[in-house]
């Protein structure tokens, strides 16, 4: 009997997961369908950009600075062995612009802004604000979900760009100011190696994709959360776990497409 029960449990989990994927896709489509209405009320998007974008600034800037500083320090230690300290700028800039910037900024964004979005919408659902809106013939997806979606999608690429610039600055501070790598070769080698279209723009595309993934997961988890205190807290945890995994998996796929040696 225990075997049957555990098999049944596995089956239920699988069916539930497929169900959620289907509902999530429909939710994503509805968000896109109703985005037109929310763009007409741009003020809503601006307000959400404040709470998800502006409020994430400090963590993004500080984290970017320190990631760049660590890169500068570690990169210098390794490059020194081969006598190519002048390639430090290339190392710092390429790893930030291509990978670390988009990925780390998205991870921070998921835990800073994504979890807040889930908790907010989950609580709105638990306190029946969403049903109240439906009663008043206000579509909660158009009024609550779509503005948050677009705010996240616009904010994350901007945050990523700031993260990468701060990181390069951090690498500069450690490499050039503190350690004393030649300033001219730091910048010139960096500029020779980093291509605007191939590296910078691909990083922006990555962060855009991550922005879509993180916000859709966060909003869906909130919308789908069981309307209890426990349910909301579980949904918040799932948001962070799922969006972190989604970011890392998507990053691998995008990297395989973008930087497959040419």
């Amino acid at each position: 009997m225990a075997v049957v029960r555990s098999l049944r449990g596995i089956g239920a989990r699988v069916i539930n997961a497929v169900w959620r994927i289907g509902f999530g896709s429909r939710f994503f489509l509805m968000t896109l369908v109703y985005s037109g209405t929310s763009f007409r009320r741009f003020r809503l998007i601006v307000r959400e950009m404040f709470s998800s974008g502006v409020m994430s600034l400090i963590i993004i800037l500080v984290a970017g600075m320190f990631v760049g500083m660590v890169l500068g320090l570690q990169g210098y230690e390794t490059l020194k062995r081969y006598g190519s300290e002048s390639a430090l700028g290339t190392l710092v800039a390429l790893s930030l612009v291509r990978e670390l910037g988009p990925v780390l900024a998205a991870l921070l964004f998921a835990s800073r802004a994504g979890s807040a979005m889930t908790a907010e919408i989950g609580l709105m659902k638990a306190t029946e604000q969403l049903s109240a809106m439906e009663m008043m013939a206000v579509n909660p997806i158009a009024r609550v979900v779509a503005p948050r979606f677009w705010a996240g999608v616009i904010s994350l690429p901007l945050l990523t760009a700031m993260f990468s610039s701060m990181g390069v600055f951090g690498g500069y501070v450690v490499g050039v100011v503190l350690i004393g790598v030649d300033e001219g070769s730091f910048w010139s080698q960096m500029q020779a190696a980093v291509d605007f279209q191939h590296d910078v723009m691909n990083g922006v595309i990555k962060s855009f994709v991550f922005g879509v993934a993180v916000t859709v997961i966060a909003l869906f988890e909130g919308y789908d959360a069981p309307p209890t205190a426990e349910g909301v807290s579980g949904a918040t945890t799932r948001t962070v776990v799922e969006s972190s995994l989604a970011i890392l998996i998507l990053d691998f796929i995008l990297t395989a497409f973008m930087f497959r040696g040419d």
Partner: peptide, 18 residues
């Protein structure tokens, strides 16, 4: 926030990129 973000992109394009 938007100006700073676009500014960072410009920095990436001009100072870091080619």
């Amino acid at each position: 926030f938007v100006v700073a973000g676009i500014g960072a992109l410009v920095v990436l394009a001009m100072k870091v990129g080619n």
